[in-house]
């Protein structure tokens, strides 16, 4: 049953899962912003390259990508050998970016035309206009779908257990295999912990939403 050492091992697994989720979330957020803005670029080549990225990651299966990056990539070149954690961060992050791209693009597009015109009238253009006027307003409408995206990414972290990373799911599988936990208690514990992590994400994103509203002078 849940002895001290079992709980310790589960805690180790949770810690790996949290690290992976935070890093993949950072990569995914960056990829989403870059890709979302690239989708609005005036250059056709940039838009096209971006569309290839989005279609590839929205169209292919994360688990196959993980296997490919972990088992096949090193065969092409030994220098392309990465740790399971590195593979997980990059693959999960880029997948998240493919979905986040549409969220960023849609939110930026939803900022009213008047804001662009006012910026031009005040001779604020280009990077400054996006950075200080448009993007901050877009963030507000990004946050709710961004929270859901983070939860999808968190669920995806369980896949790394299949490429040998000792995340929460892997620890649960190992504890079950070794007979430390019954199947029922091992997997119930995993599901409850993942649910708790997902709720935490929802909670954090809600706070961020309130913060964003307040900093824009809106009702919290």
């Amino acid at each position: 049953m849940f002895t001290e050492s079992v709980i310790e091992r589960l805690a180790d697994g949770v810690w790996i899962t949290i690290q992976l989720a935070v890093m993949a979330g950072a990569v995914g957020t960056a990829a989403a912003i870059v890709s979302g803005l690239a989708g609005l670029s005036s250059s056709r080549a940039v838009r096209w390259a971006n569309q290839v990225y989005v279609d590839f990651f929205r169209g292919s299966s994360a688990i196959i990508q993980l296997y490919w990056a972990y088992y096949a990539l090193p065969i092409i070149d030994r220098d392309l050998t990465f740790s399971p954690l590195q593979v997980g961060v990059v693959v999960l992050g880029l997948n998240m970016g493919g979905y986040g791209s549409e969220i960023v693009r849609g939110a930026v597009q939803s900022v009213s035309r008047g804001q662009y015109e006012a910026s031009t009238a005040l001779s604020i253009g280009g990077y400054q206009r996006m950075r200080y006027i448009i993007f901050p307003q877009a963030v507000l409408s990004m946050l709710p779908p961004y929270g859901n995206l983070l939860i999808e990414m968190l669920k995806g972290t369980a896949l790394v257990s299949l490429i040998t990373l000792a995340d929460l799911t892997r620890v649960g599988l190992d504890l079950r295999q070794a007979g430390d936990l019954s199947s029922a208690s091992a997997f119930t514990a995993l599901l409850v912990i993942y649910f708790f992590l997902a709720i935490s994400i929802t909670f954090i994103v809600r706070r961020a939403e309130r913060f964003a509203r307040r900093s824009m002078g809106l009702e919290a």
């Binding site: 669920k155 972290t157 299949l162 649960g172 649910f195």
Partner: peptide
């Protein structure tokens, strides 16, 4: 809110 993979294991082993 929970991973499909873990649900799969749950159904398969429990």
């Amino acid at each position: 809110s929970t991973p499909l993979l873990v649900q799969l294991f749950f159904l398969f082993y429990v």
